[in-house]
Amino acid sequence: MILEHGDDLPVVPGSAIGVIPNPMSGRDIRRIVSQASVFPNTEKTSMVLRILRAAGTLGVERVLLSTDTFGIAAGVQREMVRLTTAKSTAHLRWPKVEFLELDRPTGSAADTTAYARIMAEQCSAAVVLLGGDGTMRAAVPGLGRTPMLALSTGTNNAFPIMLEATVAGMAVGMIAIGAVDAPETRCKMLHVEITRASGRVDHEVALVDACVSTAMDVGSRALWTGTSLRELYCTFGEPHGIGLSSIVGRLLPTGRADDHGAAVMLTDPATAAHTVLAPLAPGLLQPVGVNGVGELVPDRPHPVRLDRGTVAVDGEREVEFGPQDRVTVTLRHDGPRVIDVPAALRASTAHHTLLAHQ
Rank of each mutant, 00 (worst) to 15 (best):
M47V: 08
T166E: 14
L232M: 05
V140A: 04
L149K: 06
A350W: 14
V341M: 03
D209R: 11
T57Q: 15
M216F: 13
G178C: 07
V63R: 02
T84M: 00
V338Q: 00
D8E: 10
G173N: 05
P279K: 09
M170P: 00
V97I: 05
M265I: 12
E295P: 06
A139K: 08
L331Y: 02
R82Q: 01
Y115V: 10
G144A: 09
A36W: 04
E101N: 15
T153Q: 00
E101C: 14
A74Y: 06
T225F: 04
G107A: 01
D268M: 10
L100M: 10
V297N: 05
R31M: 10
Y233T: 07
N22S: 06
L64P: 01
E43I: 10
E320V: 15
S34C: 09
K188L: 09
M136K: 13
A179F: 09
H260C: 15
V11Y: 01
G261T: 03
T113R: 02
P269I: 00
L100E: 03
L64C: 06
L163I: 13
L355G: 01
H333S: 11
S15P: 00
S88K: 14
T271C: 12
G131S: 11
D111R: 08
D259K: 13
S220V: 15
M189R: 15
A263G: 12
M265N: 12
M1E: 10
A55R: 05
P342C: 05
G178F: 04
G335F: 09
L284E: 03
P40G: 15
P303C: 12
D8V: 06
D209G: 10
P95I: 14
R196C: 05
A90D: 01
P141S: 04
T155I: 12
C211P: 07
G199M: 11
G219D: 12
D7Y: 11
P279E: 03
E43W: 02
L285T: 13
E316W: 03
T267V: 15
P13D: 03
R308D: 03
L129N: 04
T113L: 07
S213Q: 06
A171I: 09
C211E: 10
